[in-house]
Design a protein around this nucleic acid. Structure first.
Lengths: 346, 346
DNA sequence: GGAGGTCGGTGTAACGATGCACCAGCCAGA
DNA sequence: TCTGGCTGGTGCATCGTTACACCGACCTCC
């Protein structure tokens, strides 16, 4: 089932079949075109991608590097990105970095060596230096869930929710309910978006006239430089225990993400407190489970379908023009979803 | 950075470099080998996969078709399969079928056209007829979470937990706690493993001397022929509401999987009941959230890391020998994990 | 001393698709 | 009649890698 066989079947040369296949149908008589199309159908011909890629250097596979698809948030991204890609005949190669910078880098190298020219990167790293060499050679990069930084490549596209606004909304929600002793629970603020969420938290406090001093920040475990998403819940649980041991425990908690928030809820429950009554908890992301949990979790929603579609659209545009494209940042508006886990302080 | 450049740098012919790259290092002097290795390092050479694949027809990408990575269970599979593959230099191409048979089939066609010769298929379909033509042409297929059926291709490898034993364990756990009015909550029993889980449920009842008549089976919504994994929780919630409306509601519920179980818990809570006290609920899979939920969920664990590793190992063996390999089934032993969502009936 | 064997390595024809350069045939305009 | 241009196609070199067939040089053994 090669192009040659199709050509023979249709009584034309391989070049003509190739012309039809590559959008040059106007260069032939309608009846020729029809003959070729019939031959393709009859033989069930599909172009060999390896050959095509070898010849053209182009390619319709994009890479997706996420910390871990074990986290439903990234799972959701994978799903939506794939849908968008599929609709345009693209494929998605999935890579789990497990938040390991080395692995992240190795994956991108591999992808590049495989001829993949566009990657959606969900990096936890503040610097993208490790991939700069490839970007200079033409790798198109879309950073997801990470806003642009000063040192980033000029061509970088960033797609993210406005993290600062998001956690400010969360914090504001708590202060409006009357909470004044708040805590922010996170692992080390190693990534850009975590820093921003913390910034939003502080902004929310200040807006309510609260002193940032009055805010308790949950201590971070040992030298946990970073944490995996699956372990986020463990971290939340441990942090809750520590907060409860304080003299004046907080009545409102803003967690870095939903997985972490669920862990916090678990930890509070361990301590005999009722979430949504004794203590209020707000998450971030709005994963499916937020609405399933008991109590249902108040959280900040990221508009995932739109964000995933935007990531693909941006990447594709750059891949197909492949001109010296200018970078840009897309900041999506987060939305506060109020559920049962928040209430006025007792 | 082609093999030719490496050859020039090392002062040998491309063939010799190719020999080294393909495990024929013994055919050259050690010093020649060293020269080539130095050249490869110096130039940072990586073989072009497209060219290699075009030439050999072989390929180190495997496909993974799952219903939806939005479900953490499949996310976990993706993660573990990818780890196993990566360690051997393979890649994983991820496809979400969204439980749509047509999409499943299209994906496999696409993968095949791309030169992918091995696929891990997590199909909800009882029949694999739609992929038979490709299997006959050499596609290696590993069915995951689906036991072999009579009509399956002879070469098929099936990897699955023993579903019947799993739900029998779950059911037995409830009867031993003293429950006698049990319900089984599921969507339509459209897939093989769902049927088996139901069978295990019945077996568990009979083992306890209970009549299957006494078991309430939650009615399935309308013509929902099947359901997505994300919606599994919705389904569980609705089913719980229906069960509560019965004259004699069950005191113990076995759910088809954890997502569904979480939905059931949510539904019971909607109805004012306390899970783990008024009603007991058992799930299946042991996703990460089972241990986070309030109450923590008693469930049947599938040994995912082992299963994923086995899937890759089996696939790889068939890909590399590519002989007329015999099919086989691997049934893993499920394990009951008892947590808070089950207790003696009130 | 010639037959046969091993060692270390090379030449070359593919794999399938692409797209530039080219070509015959025809028509219009000068 | 000649030139120039358009139309509908085709020929061919090429992408990077592989592996079969081959080749000299040297060794061994009868």
């Amino acid at each position: 089932m090669t192009i040659q066989q199709v050509a023979t079947e249709a009584g034309v040369s391989p070049s003509t079949v190739s012309n039809l296949l590559n959008g040059r149908a106007h260069r032939m008589l309608p009846q020729t075109r029809e003959r070729i199309e019939r031959a393709i159908d009859k033989l069930g011909y599909r172009p060999n991608r390896a050959a095509r890629q070898l010849r053209t250097g182009r390619n319709t596979t994009i890479g997706l590097v996420v910390p871990s698809v074990g986290n439903p948030f990234w799972g959701a991204l994978a799903r939506h990105l794939e849908s968008a890609a599929l609709a345009e005949g693209y494929h998605v190669l999935l890579c789990n970095s497990e938040r390991d910078p080395r692995r992240e880098r190795d994956y991108i190298d591999e992808l590049w060596a495989d001829g993949v020219q566009g990657v959606v990167l969900c990096s936890s790293l503040p610097s993208l230096e490790h991939v700069m060499p490839l970007v200079e050679r033409g790798l198109q990069l879309v950073a997801f869930d990470r806003t642009s930084q000063a040192g980033d490549p000029a061509s970088l596209v960033s797609i993210s929710v406005d993290n600062a606004i998001g956690s400010q909304l969360a914090t504001q929600h708590l202060t409006e309910l009357g909470h004044s002793r708040l805590a922010f629970v996170s692992g080390a603020l190693a990534s850009v978006n975590r820093k921003e969420r913390y910034r939003g938290f502080i902004a929310g406090l200040e807006q309510a006239g609260l002193d940032a001093e009055s805010a308790v920040r949950a201590p971070v475990k040992g030298d946990a430089d970073d944490f995996g998403d699956v372990e986020a819940s463990e971290l939340g649980r441990a942090a809750a225990a520590e907060l409860l041991a304080l003299e004046e425990p907080p009545t409102g908690i803003v967690a870095i993400n939903d997985m972490c928030a669920l862990g916090v809820c678990r930890g509070l429950r361990d301590g005999g407190l009722e979430v949504g009554k004794d203590v209020s908890v707000v998450g971030f992301d709005d994963i499916v489970l937020a609405d399933l949990y008991a109590p249902t979790l108040t959280t900040v929603r990221q508009p995932m379908p739109e964000m995933a579609a935007a990531a693909f659209t941006q990447l594709r545009a750059r891949l197909e023009n492949s001109g010296p494209s200018q970078g840009q940042s897309l900041l999506f508006r987060p939305e506060l979803i109020v559920r049962e886990s928040t209430a006025p302080p007792p």
